[in-house]
Amino acid sequence: MTEFPKILMILGAVLLAIGFFMQFIGKLPGDILVKRGNFTFFFPVVTCIVISILLTIIFSIFGRFK
Rank of each mutant, 00 (worst) to 15 (best):
G19L: 01
G12T: 01
I10C: 14
L16I: 00
I57S: 15
L8M: 08
G63A: 05
F59H: 10
T47C: 12
I49N: 15
I18F: 14
F21E: 01
F59N: 09
F65M: 06
I51W: 11
L15K: 02
L28W: 01
N38Y: 05
K27P: 00
E3L: 14
L55A: 15
I58L: 15
T2W: 12
V14N: 11
F20T: 00
T56A: 13
I7F: 13
M1S: 08
V45G: 03
I7A: 15
D31L: 03
I51C: 15
F20Q: 10
V14A: 15
T56P: 00
L16S: 13
P44Q: 04
F62K: 04
E3N: 12
F42D: 04
T56R: 13
T2Y: 14
R36A: 13
A13F: 06
M9Q: 09
I10V: 10
F62L: 10
T2S: 15
L15Q: 04
S52A: 11
G63N: 03
F59K: 06
D31E: 05
I51T: 07
C48W: 10
F59E: 01
G63S: 05
V34M: 13
K66C: 08
V46L: 11
I61Q: 14
V45A: 12
M9W: 01
G37W: 01
V50D: 11
I25D: 09
Q23H: 08
L28K: 02
F24L: 02
